[in-house]
Nucleic acid binder design. Structure first.
Lengths: 232, 232, 232, 232
DNA sequence: TATGAATGAGGTTTCATTCAT
DNA sequence: GATGAATGAAACCTCATTCAT
């Protein structure tokens, strides 16, 4: 059991080393030798823990994915409202990626475009995640928070796609500098994009002026209040 | 001139063959031999046209990028309103990716995560595109179509990120089946997410029913149009 | 005939270009393309004049060897005495190599170690040269100028070897700077090394001064003549 | 230590195999595959020991050069007189080359004309050798054994050049058959070529016979002593 | 005659992976 | 359990050379 523990630790180290080297060089440019060197072991040792280079790659997201899921689930349970939960998810992703750039590189630049990864157990965990996301959106629809005809899959794609696009840009180009600053703007766009107009269910009667004086209009905007946000 | 033409044609064929093989196998799994076979030429011939395998890869997006840009620019000139232009862009992207899945694979699964591509001339064209996108959003902000505090870069990331996420999913998982069906839902989310409430500049008078009958409401929705959504 | 002349000129140009490129890069590092570029023709044109790259190499020494031989033969006919002829040969070689460093490179760094060159017609000319050299030494032996037991082949090897060693050093290391400055020292060593002591076959009687005045001695040296050189 | 020893042995074997193949085929004609076959290992194994084919080539002269230098230095210490040392060097070289024709081929036909070799550490050892040679000649000059105006560099070039010329001829043409037979003739030429006449500073009176009987002459030579050496 | 274009042939090199110790 | 050492397999790329025009 002592050895078992030892091996777990070493395995984790190997994964960490692999993450670093893969992030720096990409999968094909990275060599087992370099990973071994980074981990302070011999090449052959890596093969004691992982059957192939690709399996080593696939092992990288596992812990993060599993542990991350637990954490996030915990958070989500205490949060009320689909929109708020969306924000939590967005926060969580951007936070993780910002704090673990090597992991971000591996996940978004390497694994994302690896067809084999889709067959992985780890990927199944990711799938479950994805389902969770969809469920939250559905929940929001059902609760009336989101529009009825909202496509939960599209929303998911929008949120994750936007996050990933930004993270990749952050990794490769250095912009945006700060990922967490995106949390609120992104949340707002998405939530506004899918929320019920204002939850008001009566008749809406519009009265148009022939030529509404611009300045007046602006005042009116402020006075009457545009329903920028929803009510609950 | 005849020879020049011949070579242009052959070069285009090589690019096409490369696109296909790269799309199927990925960059590293694809071999020059297979591309040559696919193109019906010898390995060495490829090197008459492209100095390295990587240069061959980078040549793939060039024509699409250049020609695409022209086409889209033409469209955009005829379209009025930033939101409409956004929709045009979304349409254009999804259309291209749906019609050219090999190209989509190369662009989104291979080039997107290739750091060297960023140093390419072709990438510069992509950058110009990106600027154009931002300009359109800014235009929408100035015209009052979009909210004043809209972050154009975030909007761009959202649109492109969502598109790319969907295209990748389409390529790898087969979902969504139909990319163009995303045009309107995506446009709506984004535009709603960033537009001024509704751009209507009159008085808004709300008349509430005490208990609006569900069925009536639905009918009214369709009849009167506007607020597509319901209540629960 | 006009065309014939044209072709001869072009052939000579090709050889010149090849000489330059081979000298710079060595045989294997040099490419037909580069030689063609240097000559201002296409790769294929070279093959109109020479069947293979190696034949092009072997063509380089031909003109020099043939023309050189004629010239030198002319000189040798006017010169009397084997030692003087030896000096003429040494001069001629060093002169040629100094004036034509590219040729020297090709001859001494490339052809010298090419086994195929030995089968060449051009090499046969070189062999005749070599025979000539030996004949001169033999002549010197017969005339009594050189020691009876002189090995003409060794003398040839010594002269040519020394020259080549110096030329190579000159080419690769830049030392000696000036090749022609070697003519006399080299001649002296070799001739002293093989000449009859002084060719004098009588008794030698030495008469010593107690303290021969240095200056006188020097004068005497010049006046009487130390047998540095031979007589005829 | 056992493994270390094993690897040293294998490395030496690889060098031996390379020496053989390079000698037979030349550097460019020789292939790693053939060397590997000759050594009884796989191609890849060679690259475990040498980073490139060229480095493998450059490794060949190292041991010979180092060990040889030690041996020769030992000899030279016991030998008195610059002329005798010269003879020892000549002997040593010809002996090595005769005993190791493959090495001779590599050294004189391949390395001699390789510009990159000049940048090698091994070549630096060769340079030190060369300095040693010059020092011996200088020593001879200072001791009065050799003429004052002797150029040590020219002497070195003469000795080495002559040796190399003969060895190459021996390798390529089979002549001379026996290299060691050159030791004395070559030594004599060179030493005669540069030795002090006899350092005798008196009058020299010559008495000629009308017809000196050949045989008598020879006896006289021995009896009276040719002024091969000097006094001080 | 000159050449643009195509290619056959092959070599060096790289690495993931294996296995005896 | 760890590793030093060995290798199989293959890929990219280069060039001398050919041939239709």
């Amino acid at each position: 059991m002592a050895t078992n523990k030892r091996m777990e630790v070493r395995k984790a180290n190997l994964i960490k080393a692999a993450e670093k080297v893969f992030a720096e060089k990409g999968f094909h440019q990275a060599t087992i030798s370099e990973i071994a060197r980074q981990a302070g072991v011999s090449d052959a040792t890596i093969y004691e823990y992982f059957p192939t280079k690709e399996e080593l790659l696939f092992a990288i997201p596992l812990s993060m994915t599993l542990k991350g899921k637990e954490d996030l689930l915990l958070h989500l349970k205490i949060i009320r409202g689909a929109a708020n939960k969306l924000r939590a998810i967005i926060y969580w992703y951007l936070d993780i990626y910002e704090k673990h750039p090597d992991y971000a590189s591996v996940a978004l630049l390497i694994l994302k475009s690896n067809r084999e990864f889709l067959k992985t157990d780890t990927y199944q965990v990711v799938r479950e995640w994805a389902r969770l996301f969809v469920d939250i959106v559905k929940e929001g629809i059902e609760s009336g928070e989101f529009k009825v005809n909202t496509d939960p899959y599209l929303v998911r794609a929008a949120v994750l796609g936007t996050i990933e696009h930004n993270v990749i840009s952050h990794l490769l180009l250095g912009r945006p500098k700060n990922l967490l600053s995106l949390v609120d703007p992104l949340t707002e766009i998405v939530v506004r994009g899918i929320c019920q107009d204002d939850g008001f269910n009566g008749w809406r009667i519009k009265v148009a002026f022939e030529q509404p004086p611009e300045k007046l209009e602006q005042k009116l905007d402020k006075t009457v209040g545009r329903n920028k946000k929803k009510r609950k």
